[in-house]
């Protein structure tokens, strides 16, 4: 499929930004500057990037506990994200949410989610709202292979199917529900097969290949926008880090991780873009440096921001 150079460069930049954001979060977490739990997206960048490349500013996403990549790909501001991870009052959620609840409703980001499978019903509702209000907005619903076993996914898929709601269900199959391998947590090899139960298109793609994700998402978004209903895209991917930072990873071998790292979605995309002469070595360096500068700025912003005052504890419980 023909994709213009700007789009390709934009996607590459997004992936690099996510990788650098996450790499910095890992360092900051290790030094104790970021409290709580963080679940990093390193290795899965192609998924959020390939899907969100089709979304408009007024489209919606629902995200997961591993949500930083979705936010950046949907246009979230790394400064406000980093400040939120630090628990600062300047963060996206005034320090009330943290990594697992970052949201930017203005950008259509209806929240990361601390509950596995929490997002799909909310995505169905946002899609219902889009149709009800007479818009052609679509909703991308990100969830993992673990969440594909939750009832909420099936309930939302069914509702979206019977009401022809504009939802693109994006299963990020990183092959582990926390520690349990897919082979032990579901009987099917392809989550995409579950689409048949709801009479919606289901396709499994290489989630390490941003162009494969981009192509599948393009079809699904087009279908949703046209009012033809939901689709399911399964992106087979892998997280290079543990489930959370600090995970001893007793459930997988170093060899397995190394095998997947050979298919690093950023390295392979970069090689392809160099070959296509969309990128040059100079341009690669420039994108890296610009991303690094952006993350540096985000960290400075977060570090320089004030912590919330005690009184803020009581704000925003009710409207």
């Amino acid at each position: 499929m023909a994709v213009d150079r700007e789009k390709l460069l934009g996607m590459y930049t997004t992936m690099v930004t996510i990788r650098q954001f996450e790499g910095r979060v890992a360092e900051l977490f290790a030094t104790g500057k970021i409290p709580g739990f963080v679940h990093l997206y390193i290795g899965e960048e192609a998924v959020a990037t390939g899907v969100c490349a089709h979304l408009r500013r007024d489209d919606f996403i629902t995200s997961t506990h591993r949500g930083h990549g979705h936010l950046i790909a949907k246009g979230g501001d790394p400064r406000l994200m980093m400040a939120e991870l630090f628990g600062k009052r300047t963060g996206y959620c005034k320090g009330k949410g943290g990594s697992m609840h970052i949201a930017d409703v203005e950008l259509g980001i209806l929240g990361a989610n601390g509950i596995v499978g929490g997002g799909p019903p909310i995505a169905a509702g946002a899609a219902l709202s889009a149709r009800y209000r007479g818009t052609d907005q679509v909703v991308a619903c990100f969830f993992g292979d673990g969440a594909a076993n939750q009832g909420t996914f099936h309930e939302a898929a069914n509702l979206a199917a019977i009401w022809k709601l504009p939802v693109v269900f994006v299963c990020e199959n990183n092959h582990y529900g926390i520690s349990l391998h897919q082979g032990k947590h579901m009987a099917v090899a392809d989550v995409a097969d579950r689409a048949r139960a709801y009479d919606m298109p289901g396709v499994a793609v290489d989630g390490m290949d941003v162009m494969a994700v981009y192509e599948a998402a393009g079809e699904a978004v087009k279908r949703a926008r046209a009012g033809d209903g939901p689709s399911l895209i399964e992106c087979k991917t892998y997280r290079f880090r543990g489930h959370f930072e600090g995970d001893p990873e007793v459930y997988r071998s170093r060899d397995e991780v190394a095998e997947w790292q050979k298919r690093d979605p950023i390295a392979t995309f970069r090689a392809r873009l160099l070959e296509m002469q969309v990128l040059t070595e100079d341009k690669v360096r420039a994108i890296d440096e610009a991303a690094r500068a952006r993350i540096d700025e985000a960290v400075s912003f977060a570090e320089g921001s004030p912590l919330p005052e005690f009184e803020e504890l009581f704000e925003d419980v009710y409207a």
């Binding site: 019903p121 509702g125 899609a127 219902l128 709202s129 209000r133 309930e155 939302a156």
Partner: peptide
Amino acid sequence: EERVRDTPITESAIIGSAVGAAATGLRP
């Protein structure tokens, strides 16, 4: 039918879809 909807027996989706609809401008 647009404003008065029979749902399947699917309580998580009934409540969850109301959450998504409410967060995006409707009053379910």
